[in-house]
């Protein structure tokens, strides 16, 4: 078995004086600079508050939403799977009996504390009946008070899925 000597890179004189590499690097950056200077429109930066992002995909994990059945009632059956799966323990559910007979239980209270949520998507995975989702497309959630970050059931239900609306 012959020994194969692999030549190390960067040992040639040209490499060792570094200057060519430095200059080529600087040439690259200069090219970028000049191009962007001559025409700022090449820059893809959004002027954010005025311009909104238009490339949020459906797989983007935005703020949660609770889906509804066709009848408009909440799909959630208060099985606590999401709350159990949640690593941040930010989901609080209180169940109550469902009297309309469609199902056994429904949530009395369903609150998500966004200040604790880590947006892992575990709840979505855990949900057996596709009741909780994160495809609302809402990427910025701003509030003035701490209390405003507690998403109640009503708010969650009011978030519309972006599905179909974008792209």
């Amino acid at each position: 078995m012959g020994i194969k000597i692999i030549k190390r890179e960067g040992q040639s004189f040209k490499d060792r004086i570094y200057l060519p590499a430095i200059f080529s690097g600087m040439w690259v950056t200069l090219k970028h600079f000049l191009r962007n200077l001559s025409d700022t429109s090449n820059i893809k930066t959004l002027c954010y508050p005025e311009e909104q992002p238009i490339d949020i995909t459906s797989r983007y994990r935005g703020v949660h939403l609770l889906t509804k059945r066709d009848d408009g009632s909440v799909r959630c059956v208060a099985c606590f799977m999401c709350a159990t799966a949640c690593p941040a323990e930010c989901i609080f559910i209180e169940a109550k009996e469902r009297e309309d007979g469609v199902d056994e239980k429904m949530p009395e209270i369903f609150t998500i504390d966004l200040l604790e949520c880590v947006f892992c998507g575990g709840c979505v995975e855990a949900c057996p009946c596709d009741a909780i989702r994160m495809d609302s497309g809402i990427f910025s959630f701003v509030a003035q008070k701490r209390e405003d970050f507690l998403l109640t059931k009503d708010k969650l239900l009011s978030h519309e899925s972006m599905k179909g609306t974008i792209c």
Partner: peptide, 10 residues
């Protein structure tokens, strides 16, 4: 600004 332009930012 130069930093921005070099990094394709504004």
């Amino acid at each position: 600004r130069v930093a921005g332009f070099i990094q394709d930012r504004l």
